[in-house]
Write a protein that binds this DNA or RNA. Structure first.
Lengths: 214, 214
DNA sequence: CGGCATCCGTGACGATACTG
DNA sequence: CAGTATCGTCACGGATGCCG
């Protein structure tokens, strides 16, 4: 628990006693995309101080939400930490609705945040009649979505052989998510590549909550 | 002076730029239970300083998540603020799993947190075959759950005539949620009262995620 | 070099007192 | 009752240093 705790016998306060401090949920959000070492987390969280990242990791470790692979030095979520996925994705969907279209380079953006957006949408996607495994590659960020009639789950890439692989870049993902650009147009402009049939690409869009757009 | 923001073009950072500060999500959690005036929020959030509560309310207002009824002075969530319900309830469910059974009076507890627990569980409850409206009264806290085959929604009390009304107290709710006490035993001990049939009480338990317990 | 620890200036927070 | 004022303390952000 952090130094400043609410001390309420409340489920919400209990959760925030674990992950309510600055940067904590952002660290968890990054680790939901797969394990990462210290330096990589620092790259993906511009603005975080060294001391803050170290402190958050230590607190998350102490609370049993994160552990560290001794051999590689990589941090990863424990089973308990994975339990934060619904909350993180729900928060991300809330934030997604409030993100103004990306205009300049004034604000920082990262492939991992584009991937997080797609995973957050998949987390709440309506089920897909026929099961499928998708792999999405946003620059260096790779993750898989396993869609079934019961719903969709996401996980780090390379676990299963995918039925469809989509390759694109950060800005294009944000354009798709914001409805500024359609998948068809992104594909025509060479911003998005898909290995698989048209049907599967439509299913990919459905699972990631992407509706028709200009 | 711009308050501390992440400045990331990330859905998660965007959400936390609005509600990531200390107490902010707890204030939202309270307002999900219905509108409340300043003093009542202070009572329900022990430990918050006057200045902090005022600051959080002002920020939430500026971000369009909360507004204030001019006549009564009550704060309430806007439609945008209601959009936080899934995230708050998901966080609460995460925290609920980490709450150790309530033992002493060492930590503060409030009826509104018991109600929040039940509403968080209802938010993720499996659908009920036959629709029903439940009213739950935990001391001064009253809310309704409208259950349908599509899922359950909760709202402040007194909106609709309920099919079943359950009346109980804070500690009993936490015991039920923790699985320490069964509904039947709580009822036998006079800790829980239900106006309605046995079938409806079972449905109430189902909707609020309460399984069989000793 | 990557992985942190240390130091320091600023500002957010907690506690309490005060005011319309 | 609904906040504002004040102040001490601590957490955070930025930079730098150490150490394998």
């Amino acid at each position: 628990m952090p130094r400043r705790v609410y001390g309420h016998y409340s489920p919400l306060a209990q959760a925030l006693d674990s992950v309510g401090e600055r940067w904590a949920l952002l660290v968890v959000g990054e680790l939901l995309g797969g394990e990462a070492r210290y330096g990589r987390l620092q790259q993906r969280l511009p603005g975080i101080g060294s001391a803050q990242l170290a402190a958050r990791l230590r607190e998350l470790e102490r609370d049993g939400l994160v552990d560290r692979e001794p051999s590689t030095g990589a941090y990863r979520l424990t089973a308990a930490g994975q339990g934060l996925a619904p909350a993180v994705y729900a928060l991300a969907r809330f934030g997604l609705a409030r993100l103004r279209p990306l205009q300049g380079r004034s604000t920082a953006f990262r492939p991992s945040w584009a991937a997080l957006s797609l995973r957050a949408l998949a987390d709440a996607a309506p089920p897909l009649p026929e099961p499928a495994i998708f792999e999405t590659r946003v620059e260096d960020e790779v993750f898989q979505t396993v869609a079934t009639p019961e719903g969709a789950r996401t996980m780090p890439g390379g676990q299963e052989p995918p039925d469809l692989t989509v390759t694109t870049d950060t800005v294009t993902v944000f354009d798709l998510v914001a409805g500024i650009r359609s998948i068809a147009r992104a594909r025509a402009e060479g911003l998005l590549d898909a290995t698989g049939g048209e049907r599967l690409l439509e299913a990919w869009a459905w699972v990631h909550g992407l509706r028709a757009a200009p």
